[in-house]
Amino acid sequence: MLSKERFTAAAQKYMDMIFRLAFSYLKSREDADDATQNVLFALYKTDKAFESAEHMKAWLIRVTVNECKKILRSPWRRRGEPLEDYENTLRFEQPQDRELYAAVMALDGKYRAVIVLYYYEGYSIRETAQLLGVPPATVGTRLARARQQLKFTLTEAERL
């Protein structure tokens, strides 16, 4: 088990990453907060000996993915504020960042998670596949389709 100090440092370092990935799965701030708390609680309780910061990060991502799947299948998903209300609280640098964010969130869930891990966290296709527990070919397909969908959505938005 981690010391309180080491746990606190790790939690502060990774909680946004966990939330971002959870939000990409769940599209609900309340559910993503729940998932983040449960994942950090699991981190506190685990006896796992992490070999490195990267090892811990990968473990956290796996736990987050599993936690999100559990929440998605739970009868007790919380229905909180409308997604649009939460989006309106987010501060983007540029208007096009908001458009791209909306386009990403409009993707199917399986594509959103791949986008977050590949583009935001910078994992390779093979690493993303390992983290999600799917074959690399699946990640490649999802990335290609996500790119295609994003391109279509953003192009359509420009035409309007």
């Binding site: 939690a11 939000f23 708390q37 501060r91 983007f92 960042d97 908001r98 977050v116 583009y119 935001y120």
Partner: peptide, 20 residues
């Protein structure tokens, strides 16, 4: 970089650690 900037505003709630 474009996608990173678009997703950057997503942050865990302030009381996350307190809840944990």
């Amino acid at each position: 970089k474009r996608i990173q900037r678009a997703l950057e505003p997503l942050h865990a709630s302030d009381d996350t650690l307190e809840e944990v």
